[in-house]
Computed example of a mutant assay.
Amino acid sequence: MDKVPMTAEGYAALEAEIKHLKTVERPRIIKAIAEAREHGDLSENAEYHAAKEQQGMTEARVADLEDKLSRADVIDISKLSGNQVMFGATVTLIDEDTEQKVKYRIVGEIEANVKEGKISIGSPIARALLNKHKGDVVEVSTPGGGKSYEIVKVEFK
């Protein structure tokens, strides 16, 4: 069983999602199944089959999230410091071709969301950044070709 690295924030988000699925979604689905059963013949009851399918997907999601929480390796970013890029670091980069600034926080796979500036520790850019320091230039292989970034800031917040 591999440990799943995540921030305390990511752990709390998973706990909240499990709570929502168990306290809101489960009862709603159970009610939908009960209502569909009242319509009679279950073999041709689309509402019943849809509710049962949704119940299966919800239970699978709960099991998956609980598995990830049980294997969680929560890393307290507030205790990290320095100028070396590692898990939990927020890194400011400058694209050497376009001079555009980007900012990424390196998080666990489960928490990754590029729109929020959070990239997975397993992503190509995060792998290229790991163990580098402010001022270093990194080459990242992307589907569109290679990109060069200069690390201008490493912070833990």
Rank of each mutant, 00 (worst) to 15 (best):
K52S: 05
E25Q: 14
V138Q: 01
R127C: 10
Y149Q: 13
F87S: 03
L65Y: 05
L129E: 03
N113M: 13
E25P: 04
Y104D: 00
G108L: 00
A46R: 10
Y104I: 07
M1S: 12
A51V: 06
I94N: 04
A128C: 04
K22Q: 15
I125D: 01
P143D: 04
G108V: 02
D41F: 13
G146W: 12
P124F: 02
A46N: 06
G10D: 02
K22F: 13
E44I: 15
S70M: 12
E35A: 10
S70E: 13
K134Y: 00
L130S: 03
K115N: 05
A34V: 08
K134I: 13
I29K: 07
K118L: 15
I77L: 01
A63V: 13
V138H: 01
M57T: 08
S123A: 09
E66Y: 07
A126Q: 02
E38W: 12
E109T: 12
M86R: 12
L130W: 01
I77N: 00
D76P: 00
K132C: 05
S81C: 08
T98E: 14
E155H: 06
V140S: 03
K52I: 12
E111D: 07
K3S: 03
E9T: 11
M57W: 11
A89W: 00
A16S: 09
A36W: 05
S123R: 00
V62D: 06
S81D: 10
K79Y: 04
